[in-house]
Amino acid sequence: VSKSFTTQETLRNATSAREWLAAQLGGGPALGAHFIAVTANVAAARAFGVAGSDVLPMWDWVGGRFSLWSPAGLAIAIRCGWESFAELCDGAAAMDTHFRDTPLPRNLPALLALVDFWNAQASGMSQRVVVPYAHALSQLPAYLQQLVLESNGKSVTRDGAPIGRPTAPALWGEPGTDSQHAFFQWLHQGTHAVPVEFIVPVRAAHPLADQQALLVANALAQAQALMTGRPLAAVRAELAAKGAAPDVIDKDAPHRVCPGDRPSTMLLLPELNARRLGQLLALYEHRAFVEGALCGINSFDQWGVELGKALAGPLIAAVRDGVDSGDADASTRGLVAHVRTLSRRV
């Protein structure tokens, strides 16, 4: 899958796969029958050796982060089955309809985008944490990093003027069962107030005793703790009720205080299946678009990404072949030289 069919890493991987197949099966035109290409550059895919009927074209205006509903979703359909992929698309279509037709006071992508806008613009929060309480969604924060940050990590408006205010905050996260024993300590008692987004399926796909109830209860408890915290007076009263001496209370109480008043959002899903996942992903796509519109930016280009690709070209030759790195700055030239030195060591 390569929209341009020019991305260096993707083509290198495809070439390696073709070379391996050729070594195992022999060369010849039949080799192309083992490849399917999804691209907007049909001619380049055919030149690579993919048979014409095995090239699935996609529109050149579809960004990779929005492409899973296009032929790029073929890998999902192969892995999960066509029925599940169709349900995924049906869920996304339902969210599309909701976003298009629902008035703003009840429009979920718009409302969530307004929450994000408030947190970043009015409250000055430079981070956003996404915590799914489902292992099946463990890669969702990484997916959202590309969707949100590649779309809205911009500093100029659509007409090229400087924005002059924060745009997309940093986005990261992990599943709740792990993170509540790790960085939630920082969320509750650290010096940075960071909005947290909980995503919680209520019903388990494969119920086992009361495990799902425990999972949901823990998610609700974390949101409650972020909101209410634990004030000093309450901590002192708890310690006194346990019979702690006054000097012990004075010593220990400050360490147990949680300030509270820290924002969070709770998304409750009835269950997690292909249709609900489609709704969730489409919700985030539309939400990212509204966030961009609120900031006045173009959410559908990625010139920062393109800069990295352009600069990598001459550096590949410098690292691999020792070719002079040309117009690179002194720092980069020094790094290339050190890489070359390390590559010669056994």
Results as ranks from 00 to 15, higher is better:
200 V>S: 09
293 A>V: 15
166 P>V: 00
209 A>G: 01
307 L>R: 13
280 L>E: 09
216 V>C: 06
136 A>L: 07
253 A>W: 11
263 P>I: 06
340 R>A: 07
229 G>L: 12
238 E>F: 07
324 D>M: 03
264 S>C: 06
178 D>G: 13
73 G>M: 04
224 Q>R: 14
219 A>T: 11
299 S>F: 04
216 V>Y: 08
274 A>M: 03
68 L>K: 09
194 V>A: 08
275 R>Y: 11
125 M>K: 03
125 M>G: 03
236 R>T: 00
266 M>V: 00
41 N>R: 00
291 E>A: 13
233 A>V: 13
333 R>P: 04
268 L>S: 07
71 P>R: 09
58 M>D: 00
105 P>Y: 04
235 V>R: 02
98 H>Y: 00
37 A>D: 11
42 V>P: 02
328 A>Q: 12
237 A>I: 05
111 L>F: 04
186 W>L: 13
304 G>E: 08
83 E>T: 11
148 V>M: 14
11 L>N: 11
37 A>T: 06
312 A>H: 06
191 T>K: 10
53 S>W: 12
224 Q>H: 10
255 H>S: 14
150 E>W: 08
112 L>C: 10
186 W>P: 02
193 A>C: 14
299 S>K: 00
181 H>M: 04
181 H>P: 05
139 Q>F: 12
86 A>G: 00
300 F>P: 09
184 F>R: 03
124 G>K: 07
31 L>T: 01
189 Q>I: 09
109 P>D: 08
321 D>M: 12
26 G>V: 04
28 G>I: 01
46 R>V: 02
42 V>H: 01
258 C>A: 12
216 V>P: 02
215 L>Q: 11
126 S>D: 11
15 T>C: 01
175 P>I: 07
29 P>D: 11
294 L>W: 12
116 D>P: 00
9 E>W: 15
5 F>R: 00
99 F>P: 01
237 A>P: 08
84 S>Q: 12
104 L>I: 12
265 T>F: 11
297 I>K: 06
283 L>K: 13
312 A>T: 07
242 K>H: 14
343 S>L: 15
304 G>V: 12
263 P>K: 03
71 P>N: 03
68 L>S: 09
129 V>H: 05
130 V>W: 14
104 L>S: 15
13 N>C: 15
154 K>Y: 06
77 A>L: 13
25 L>R: 15
263 P>Y: 08
338 H>M: 08
294 L>C: 01
142 A>F: 08
252 D>F: 04
256 R>L: 15
27 G>K: 03
271 E>W: 04
126 S>E: 08
43 A>Y: 05
308 G>P: 02
